[in-house]
Design a protein around this nucleic acid. Structure first.
Lengths: 206, 206
DNA sequence: CGTGCCGCTGACCATTTGGTCAAACAATCA
DNA sequence: TGATTGTTTGACCAAATGGTCAGCGGCACG
């Protein structure tokens, strides 16, 4: 995470530090709940110093969302017509689950933004995101038409994959408390379950 | 929604109005992002008047969570060993989806709280919620052991049902924008999809 | 080695925020 | 009606918040 137009190496380092600290704070408290002082403290910089690198609180937030948006859709982009349909979708599920495991803060940041009505990212959702989903939905439809996938609504399939995988990042606390395991990771079990869930639902009837 | 210990009918009416307005605001902005002024305005009352009925901002928030928690678990409580296992679970899915449709603000309030680490509701999660889930997980395990349900991890099954159903309330904006339908409700399609998903995954192999 | 630009900060500011309080106002009931 | 209790509010406060600015220090390079 380099930040906007890092010319010197100090700029690269510090704007990276700021964005990382901001991700911590924004992902936990949302845009309005987060404060510049919190971010500054976590970054180990002074508040005016933050505002030397970014013009405003909102600019930091938007920079994060921008950086996130593209990477966030990568797993879905990788869904191609190359392989066996059921396994292609299962691979997507695994990639998405891996994203939740590796980047829970990013998932929460995104969730927070959407929860609040996505005021600062609506255009990206209606543009980039919708376009990509439309494209993949069409691909899924052809698979269904060819009888290589059970007949399902592609959009709601994608929604359910987003929901089930991101759940482990966004609702992390709840998952851990309900499972009662203190340090143990729920991800291996989750992957097993989701694999069964989607394989059963997508394998076409013979 | 009556509020805490309404003695007079004015108290009942006003604390109800306050909680309803607070649900609007808290569910959209989270605890830290919401302001008393916003709540007061939406309730049509003055800010000091709010604080006549509730001792603090946090008290309003906690009152909401308390009122919500019990009702929120009702659909799961209704999962009993009376009927056919697969249909019992499917009924649970439908009830939970209905909750998202009818009470999206409550769903978002809850989601916001969990996203932020559940600081004011952790005990209820480790107590009431975990107890109930443990109980129903045991029931599901017996169904699996009897061969009346496909072998699945009961906890992750419950997580996935929460995730997929609440998704339609919490990520409402995203769902609507991606589907591109402006006033149309996605719920009938969602119910059809989720029914297929869970029926396929839970029906035991013959 | 000096000069100029990049990086940084303490002090400050206006606004917002949660919360208080005394006093005014309304409802109830003897 | 009058006394008592319940309800409402304008004015106010201290703290927190996003943001500004003049100036200081240091690094880089001619």
């Amino acid at each position: 995470m380099t930040g906007p137009r890092a010319r010197t190496r100090i700029q690269a380092r510090n704007s990276g530090t700021i964005l990382d600290a901001a991700l911590d704070v924004f992902s936990q408290f949302g845009f309005r709940g987060a404060t510049l002082d919190q971010i500054a403290e976590r970054a180990g910089l002074s508040k005016p110093n933050l505002l030397y690198y970014f013009p405003s609180k909102e600019a930091i937030y938007v920079a994060l969302l921008d950086a996130l948006m593209h990477a966030w859709l990568d797993p879905l982009r990788a869904l191609t017509h190359d392989g066996e349909p059921v396994e292609e979708v299962l691979d997507y599920v695994r990639r998405k689950l891996e994203m939740s495991r590796l980047y829970p803060r990013e998932s929460r940041l995104f969730a927070n933004e959407i929860l609040q009505g996505a005021p600062r990212i609506l255009d990206r959702i209606e543009g980039e995101l919708k376009t990509l989903v439309d494209e993949k939905a069409a691909l899924i439809r052809t698979w269904v038409a060819e009888g290589r996938l059970a007949p399902v609504d592609p959009y709601h399939l994608v929604f359910s994959i987003w929901a089930t995988t991101q759940h482990y990042a966004d609702f992390d606390v709840q998952v851990h408390r309900v499972l009662g395991q203190d340090g143990d990771a729920p991800y291996p079990e989750a992957e097993r379950f989701l694999t069964h869930l989607y394989r059963a639902a997508l394998t076409p009837a013979r």
